[in-house]
Design a protein around this nucleic acid. Structure first.
Lengths: 144, 144
DNA sequence: TTACCTGCAAAGAATTTGCAGGGCC
DNA sequence: GGCCCTGCAAATTCTTTGCAGGTAA
């Protein structure tokens, strides 16, 4: 058994919202947390399907929304228009550096940038809640 | 007549790509450049429809893509999943500060952030081409 | 037992494409 | 004249919803 901490968080969220615990949701959570990548619903569906052949597409959609609601995962909308989900197990907040050619994702954080964002928002009368930063460019390999 | 400079850029793009000039596209461009806001295709369609009642939805889609291709406009994908288009006439590159409650957009730029992004990308072996930064928070009015 | 969970299929929403007729070069 | 442009309708793609039967509490 793994990801005990996340399961506790998720099950608390389920209870707090008057929903019921289900074996399947916990299985999907475990599979999802084991994926080290930003998956689309389609990708997650295929991976889950291997272990739970009876699962339906709608369930994946419904389930990742629950993960997001419980704070275990967050949605990522990039330029290609597809929604991706990334779990937060073992990942602090981070931004994304994306290669325009090969599609490689790199997770990056820069404290200086974070602080300046906070300052910039304040200067405009805003209280910052969250931000999304994507850097697009060409990685080393793709420049050769 | 207005937006001469943009029309020249657009027409050059059309020619360079073996497409044909059309009165309608130029009219749409002029209307679009006159809108000081990030419009969805639906919004733009309604506005254009007032002056060009015969226009179709598909044309708006096709035409804004051309604007993007010619560099006169860029796509903006936010958390709500709808694609917005903003023209660059009179707008330097900027990021967005968005109020989560009232939806207000503020265009912001911070040179410090821009420079750190460049540095961060380089540190990871990337050559930066562009970036997208959205700051979400609560504006002054909405906090009262 | 009651209300939620689930798979399936159908519905929705946003966007793209095919086609036939009209316009540009 | 040939090829692109355009409106319309149909097709696609991604996502949500309704429903009927199964399951947790």
């Amino acid at each position: 058994m793994s990801y005990e901490e996340e399961k506790i968080i998720f099950n608390k969220y389920i209870r707090d919202n008057n929903m019921k615990h289900s074996e399947q949701r916990e299985n999907i959570l475990e599979i999802f947390l084991g994926i080290e990548k930003h998956v689309t619903v389609e990708e997650l569906y295929k991976i889950v399907k291997e272990k739970l052949p009876a699962v339906g597409y709608a369930t994946i959609y419904r389930t990742v929304k629950l993960f997001c609601g419980s704070g275990l995962c967050c949605e990522l909308k990039l330029e290609d228009g597809r929604t991706r989900f990334e779990h937060l197990h073992g990942h602090e907040h981070h931004d994304h550096l994306i290669c325009e050619k090969c599609g490689r994702f790199v997770e990056v954080v820069d404290n200086g940038i974070e602080k300046l964002q906070e300052k910039l928002a304040r200067a405009n009368g805003f209280v910052l809640k969250k931000h999304r930063l994507q850097l697009y460019g060409l990685c080393e390999k793709c420049r050769r």
